[in-house]
Amino acid sequence: KHCVKCNKAITSGGITYQDQPWHADCFVCVTCSKKLAGQRFTAVEDQYYCVDCYKN
């Protein structure tokens, strides 16, 4: 599998969101770069925000 963000191979520790593979380090808030894996977040038009950034 290849990460949908960076297009590099996922060798271990990847996550899946909406049936797409991601590196955990690539699945981050677009505003603050906080890792979103296992966290609550909001998706708006294929942009992902942590709860704090989305509220602001």
Score class of each variant (00 low, 15 high):
A24E: 01
H2D: 15
Y17R: 10
N56V: 15
V51E: 12
N7C: 14
A37S: 07
T42Q: 06
V4Y: 05
K8Y: 14
I15C: 07
V30R: 06
Y17K: 11
R40S: 12
V51W: 10
K5Y: 15
S33Y: 12
Y49K: 08
V28R: 13
Q39E: 12
A24G: 10
T16V: 15
C6L: 01
V30A: 10
Y17I: 12
H2W: 01
D52Q: 10
T11A: 08
T31N: 15
S33M: 05
T11E: 10
V30N: 10
Y48C: 02
W22L: 12
V30Y: 10
C32S: 00
V4H: 06
H23Y: 00
V51Y: 02
Y49D: 09
C26R: 01
W22M: 06
R40V: 08
C32R: 00
G38K: 09
K8N: 13
K1A: 02
S33Q: 15
V4D: 08
L36W: 05
A37L: 12
S33D: 14
K35S: 08
I10N: 02
V44R: 09
Y17E: 10
K1L: 15
T11V: 04
C6H: 03
C50M: 00
K1G: 02
Y17H: 14
Y54P: 02
T42H: 02
Q39I: 08
Y49A: 07
Y54Q: 09
Q39A: 11
S33C: 07
A43V: 08
N7A: 15
Q39K: 12
C32L: 00
P21R: 06
F41Y: 14
C29F: 00
D25N: 03
A9T: 08
F27P: 02
F27L: 09
N56Y: 03
V28I: 15
Y48E: 06
G14Y: 05
I10D: 01
C50H: 12
G38F: 04
T31L: 09
T31Q: 06
C3V: 02
D52P: 10
H2V: 14
I15K: 05
K8I: 09
V4L: 08
K8H: 14
C53P: 00
I15A: 09
R40F: 05
Q47V: 11
S12P: 05
K5F: 10
T42F: 03
E45R: 10
D46M: 02
R40C: 13
A43T: 09
Q18V: 09
G14A: 13
V51Q: 06
C29P: 00
F27G: 03
Y54N: 04
G13Q: 08
T11C: 05
V30P: 06
P21W: 04
Y49N: 02
Q20L: 12
C32I: 00
A9P: 09
D52T: 07
A37D: 15
Q39D: 12
K55P: 15
T42V: 07
V28P: 04
C26D: 00
D25H: 05
D19H: 05
Q18G: 14
N7H: 05
H23W: 00
K8D: 14
C50A: 01
D25Y: 05
C6N: 04
Q20F: 05
N56L: 14
D52I: 04
F41P: 14
E45C: 10
D52Y: 08
Y48M: 13
C3L: 00
D19R: 06
D25G: 09
F27C: 14
Q47I: 03
W22E: 04
Y54K: 12
G14V: 11
A37Q: 13
T11W: 05
Q47R: 10
G14W: 05
E45P: 04
K35P: 05
P21F: 09
A37R: 07
V28C: 09
D25K: 05
H2R: 04
C32G: 00
E45A: 13
K35W: 07
C6D: 11
T11Q: 07
V51D: 07
I10F: 07
A43M: 11
A24S: 15
C3R: 01
T42D: 03
V28W: 04
T16N: 15
C50N: 01
D52V: 08
Q20S: 11
Q18K: 10
F41K: 15
K5R: 15
K1V: 03
W22C: 08
I10H: 00
S33G: 10
A24D: 03
A24F: 08
A37I: 08
V30L: 14
Y17N: 14
C50Q: 01
K5E: 13
C53W: 00
V28E: 10
Y49T: 14
C50P: 01
F27V: 04
Y48W: 09
G13T: 07
V30I: 15
T11N: 02
V28F: 15
T31V: 07
Y17A: 09
C26W: 01
A43E: 05
H23F: 00
Q47E: 10
G13C: 04
Q20V: 07
A43S: 12
I10M: 04
F27K: 02
K5V: 10
K8S: 13
Y48H: 12
A24H: 11
H23N: 00
V4F: 14
C32W: 00
E45S: 13
C26N: 01
I15Q: 10
A37F: 15
A37Y: 08
Y54S: 12
Y49I: 11
V51M: 04
Q39R: 08
K5S: 15
G14E: 15
N56E: 01
K8R: 05
H2F: 09
Q18R: 13
C32T: 00
D52A: 12
C32Q: 01
V30K: 09
Y49G: 06
Q47G: 12
H23C: 11
G38H: 06
T16S: 14
C26F: 01
P21I: 03
G13R: 06
V44E: 13
Q18T: 08
Y48L: 12
A24P: 12
G38M: 06
Q20Y: 06
S33E: 13
G14S: 10
K5C: 15
T16I: 05
Y54R: 09
